[in-house]
Amino acid sequence: MLKKIISVALFGALGGIIRSWIQSGLDAHTGTLPLALILINVIGSTLLGCLTGGFLTLLDTPDTLNVGLTTGLMGGFTTFSTFQLTLLNLFKTGSMVMGIGFILVSTLLSIGGASLGQWSGTKLLRYYRGSW
């Protein structure tokens, strides 16, 4: 159990650092539009889908690494709390249309990304397992 906690902590820190780096780089160019956050959450959802859809099974990784990559790395990379804060700030500033658009675009693209990732992970697993 302790190994899993350490794995989540280390990978979570890495995910948060990567998110911060990408977000700070993109936010400088997108102004008030929360494009960086949308992109981060869609990429994270897609990668998490791919990992859980078969990639981790294909690599036959230990549970400690699995939980580190999924809960830690992807959990630290994507963020629901930042999504909520961004949404609250949009609504506070009177940007209702942008806020609603942000909800729809973020949610639909993230679900689509997770689905694409799961599909890709499953296809990858079947392809490589079929050739063994």
Rank of each mutant, 00 (worst) to 15 (best):
Gly54Tyr: 02
Leu104Ser: 10
Val105Ser: 05
Lys3Ile: 01
Tyr128His: 11
Thr64Pro: 05
Lys92Asn: 15
Gly112Lys: 12
Thr86Arg: 14
Trp132His: 12
Asp63Trp: 07
Leu88Gln: 07
Asn66Gly: 06
Thr82Glu: 03
Gly53Met: 04
Gly121Ile: 04
Thr79Tyr: 00
Pro62Cys: 13
Thr52Pro: 00
Ala9Phe: 15
Pro62Glu: 12
Asp60Val: 05
Gly130Cys: 03
Ile22Leu: 15
Phe91Arg: 08
Leu35Tyr: 14
Leu116Ser: 10
Asn41Glu: 03
Gly53Leu: 02
Arg19Thr: 00
Gln118Tyr: 08
Ser131Cys: 08
Ser120Phe: 14
Leu125Asn: 11
Phe55His: 11
Leu33Phe: 15
Gly117Thr: 03
Gly121Met: 05
Gly101Glu: 03
Trp132Phe: 11
Val105Trp: 07
Leu47Gln: 00
Gly117Ser: 05
Arg126Met: 08
Ile103Ser: 09
Thr32Glu: 14
Thr52Ile: 08
Ser45Trp: 00
Leu35Gln: 01
Arg126Ser: 07
Leu85Cys: 11
Lys3Glu: 07
Arg129Pro: 02
Met96Thr: 15
Ser131Phe: 06
Leu39Arg: 04
Phe55Trp: 15
Leu35Gly: 07
Arg126Glu: 10
Gly31Ala: 07
Gly113Pro: 09
Thr107Asp: 09
Asn89Leu: 13
Leu59His: 04
Ser81Tyr: 03
Leu73Gly: 06
Arg129Val: 10
Leu124Met: 13
Gly75Asn: 01
Thr122Phe: 08
Ile40Lys: 02
Lys4Glu: 12
Ile22Gly: 11
Phe102Pro: 01
Ile38Phe: 01
Trp21Pro: 01
Thr30Leu: 06
Val97Glu: 12
Leu14Pro: 09
Thr86Phe: 05
Leu51Phe: 15
Phe80Trp: 09
Ala36Glu: 02
Leu39Thr: 11
Tyr127Asp: 02
Thr122Lys: 13
Gly112His: 12
Met74Cys: 15
Ile18Ser: 10
Leu10Trp: 05
Ile103Tyr: 11
Met74Lys: 11
Met74Tyr: 08
Leu33Asp: 05
Phe80Asp: 01
Gly130Lys: 09
Trp21His: 08
Arg19Cys: 05
Tyr127Trp: 12
Ile43Pro: 02
Ser7Glu: 02
Ser120Asp: 00
Thr32Asn: 14
His29Ser: 12
Ile18Met: 06
Ile22Tyr: 08
Ile43Asp: 01
Ile18Val: 15
Gly68Ser: 07
Leu108Ala: 11
Ser7Arg: 00
Leu65Gly: 06
Ile22Lys: 11
Trp21Lys: 10
Gly31Ile: 02
Gln23Val: 08
Arg126Ala: 06
Ile38Asp: 00
Thr57Arg: 13
